Simulated scan of single mutants.
Amino acid sequence: MSALILHHYPSSPFAQKIRSVLGFKQLAWKSVIIPSISPKPDLVALTGGYRKTPVLQVGADIYCDTALICDVLEHIQPEPVLYPPHLKGVSRVFAQWADSTLFWASMAYNLQPKGAEMLFASLPPAAAQAFAEDRKAMSAGMVRQRPQDATAAYRSYLRRIAHMVEEHDFLFGTEPCVADFAAYHPLWFTRRVVPLMDSIFDATPAVLEWMDRIEALGQGRIEKFSAADAITVAAGAEPMPLLDDIFQDEHGIALGSQVQIAAESFGTEVTEGELLAATRTRYTLRRTDPRAGTVHVHFPRIGYVLKKAAG
């Protein structure tokens, strides 16, 4: 199997989710640091338009969205398990809640003026403004929580998590599962990226102890890698064969059609290509880039919109 290449940047909470999963599974991976805002020409050469963080590359296969990346890592390294059989349903449902409801409440709390000032303290004012404009563009049309409402919600969510980890070392028992990593990363941002905001944990010490247990899992075995080398890897590789179960038609769009895929809400940049697969859980597009060559770009079904390409 080709090396695992993660395209990410250090302060990205969703990237931390995957870095922690890589640590849990003790996997070796190559680290490509990407810009936190557009333009991201090297990443887009691989994805065709998608620019959210992180993206996992395995040869000429490009995996978008952490929900799908977790599935891929589970397939590559089945032990220790992210989806224990007795928790398959509840762990995925909880992870989806954590990646959405919990995440957005935490970020509305984290990026209040004091937190935002800390995040950008070492950068010139223009960089902070550029980040704010970039995220505003990515979230066009989304309803944002007011900081006061988000703070109240975040406190409640932390209490609920505390009730779970007071009973067990991890959310659902003695071992972590995908739910732990999904819940951990927005809290990690509060504690490690904007620690001026970490007083919200004062009422829930059990949450900090749980976070320490996640942090102790590490981040796997990391090797620095350049974006140019990652593109060279893609150009020199063939995409992996697709699974047998490649078509579950919900849209009346035939395989082989030119299509567009974009996220439903945040980060709605479009990726266009030939529809190769629409399985129960994911879409696969084939596209060709002048630098990266022919690649397969994979998306989860949940959270993404499939449309026929215009014209």
Rank of each mutant, 00 (worst) to 15 (best):
I69P: 00
Q148Y: 06
D198L: 03
T66Q: 03
A95Y: 14
Q96M: 13
A60T: 02
R146I: 12
A230E: 04
D245A: 12
D134K: 07
M142F: 05
R301G: 13
L73E: 03
L275H: 06
A67Q: 11
S12P: 10
I200M: 01
A235E: 05
Y109S: 09
M118F: 05
R191P: 00
L171I: 12
D198Y: 01
V143L: 13
P290W: 00
D244N: 10
G59D: 10
S265G: 09
F170M: 14
S156A: 12
H168E: 13
P205E: 08
Y50P: 08
L187Q: 14
S106W: 10
S100W: 08
R282S: 13
I5E: 13
W97L: 06
V32F: 05
L306G: 08
A277T: 02
T66V: 14
V305Q: 10
K308N: 05
S12Q: 04
R291P: 05
L4S: 08
G252H: 00
P300M: 07
L285W: 01
A128D: 07
L4Q: 06
V55F: 07
A153M: 13
Q26K: 15
K25P: 14
S2A: 15
L22R: 02
L22T: 09
L111Q: 03
R291Q: 12
A228V: 13
I246T: 12
K52I: 15
L217R: 12
R192A: 07
P85Y: 01
P78W: 01
S12R: 02
K17L: 06
V55M: 08
D244T: 07
N110D: 12
D229C: 00
Y154E: 10
A3P: 11
S31Q: 05
P80G: 00
Q260T: 11
A262W: 00
P80S: 02
M164N: 11
G293W: 01
W104R: 13
C64V: 12
G236M: 07
F189N: 09
V21P: 02
D245I: 01
L285K: 03
V93F: 11
I246E: 15
A292F: 01
T151L: 06
A108H: 08
L158G: 03
E166I: 09
H185I: 10
L46E: 10
E74S: 04
F170A: 09
P239W: 02
A292M: 00
F103M: 07
V58A: 14
V194C: 07
P80T: 04
A127H: 11
A228C: 09
L87T: 03
A108E: 11
C177A: 06
L68R: 04
A121M: 08
L6G: 14
P54F: 01
A127G: 02
E264W: 00
T284V: 15
T101C: 01
L285F: 03
S139E: 14
T268Q: 08
Q258Y: 09
T53K: 09
A234C: 05
G293H: 00
G293E: 01
Q145G: 07
S38V: 15
L87E: 06
M197S: 08
E74K: 02
D212F: 04
R192T: 09
V58H: 12
A179L: 14
A128G: 15
H296A: 02
T232Y: 02
D245S: 11
F14W: 04
